[in-house]
């Protein structure tokens, strides 16, 4: 299991479009993926789950991956947060 804390940097927060990019990226990997925030834990491959977090700019969350490609998956998703979910090749 690997995990890392990240901060939502894009000003509009984790709304539908970024959530869609996040889910799309995470779904490329085999590992299970959970996002923990305010004591909640949601499946990071569930777009509705991610959207219900309603994470605004500045929100902090923990990304948890478990599975054979966990390290690779974590890096890819952390990168998304860093890039503010921009310019992703979908």
């Amino acid at each position: 299991m690997v995990s890392q804390n990240v901060v939502v940097k894009n000003e509009a927060g984790l709304h539908a479009r970024p959530a869609s990019v996040l889910v799309k990226t995470a779904s490329r990997f085999k590992s299970e993926f959970f996002i923990k925030m305010y004591g909640y834990s949601v499946n990071g491959k569930s777009i509705l789950g991610v959207m219900t977090l309603a994470a605004e700019s500045g929100a902090e969350m923990e990304l948890v991956f478990e599975g054979e490609d966990e390290q690779e998956a974590l890096e890819a998703v952390v990168q998304l947060f860093e890039n503010k979910f921009k310019n992703q090749q979908l």
């Binding site: 959530a19 869609s20 889910v23 569930s46 777009i47 509705l48 789950g49 979908l90």
Partner: peptide, 16 residues
């Protein structure tokens, strides 16, 4: 297209 992409993801949401 991005909105529609999100709709398709919703339809296939594993938690749903």
């Amino acid at each position: 297209s991005e909105i529609i992409e999100a709709q398709i993801q919703t339809l296939n949401d594993p938690e749903v």
